[in-house]
Amino acid sequence: MKVSFYLFFLSFGYSLNCYGQLSIIPTWNIKPLELQHVYLIHNKDSISFSTLKIYFSDFRFKDKISGRITSIDTLIFYDLSDSSTHSFFNDLNLSNYESVAFTLGLDSSKNVSGELENAYDPLLGMYWAWNTGYINLKIMGESSAVPTNSHEFEFHLGGYRFPFATAQTIQVDLNDQYIYFDVEKLFSESINLTKNHHIMLPCKDAFLISQGLSACFK
C-alpha cells in the first residue's frame, strides 16, 4: 500500500499522544494539499488552489467498547489558509472512539439561526446574504482544464432547501486523529472542470457534486 511520508509522520505523532485534537487534512495524491501549489490532474492539466473553506457540524463519536454515541453539535469552520482552524476538540480522548460521523455543512436550522457570531461570522466569507444561509464548502483556484481566459474555477457549494439540500453526512473510522479529505478524488470523480467551473448558488450541479463528497473522506 502506498503510504506517503507525510501521512506516516502525522500518524506517528498520534501514537505518542492519544489525546490529540481532531484534525482535518485535505490531500492531493496522498500528500497534504498546499494552497498555490501546482498539481497535475488527469495526468495532463495543471491545477492549483487559492481557497479551501469548509463547515463541519453535528459530530457523533462512537465509543469503541460500549458503542455509545457522544454528540457534539457545534459548528466548526475550517480554512486551509488559517492553521488555527485545522484542529479542534482539544479535550476529547479520541482513542476511546472507533468512528465519527459528522455533517459537512450546516443543516437548515443552523442556516436560518441568525447567529452571525463566531463560526457564523459573515466576515469568514461563507455567508450568503442574498439567500440567508451559508456555503458548506468553498473551493477556488485555477486549472488549465477550465476553458476560459482566466482558467479560474469557483465552487461555492451550499443550499439547504429541497430539492438542493447539499449538507452531507459523512462517517469515517478513527484509526488516528486525522480525517483526510481527498481533494484529488473530488476533482477526478465529481467535478468536470471542462464543463463546470463556476457554481455560486444552490442548484442541481451543487447538489450532485456535494453527493460525491462523502466518498472523499476517510
Partner: peptide, 8 residues
C-alpha cells in the same frame, strides 16, 4: 423572502 431573520 430571501432573508430569514431580522438580524441578518
Amino acid at each position: 423572502g430571501g432573508v430569514l431573520n431580522l438580524n441578518a
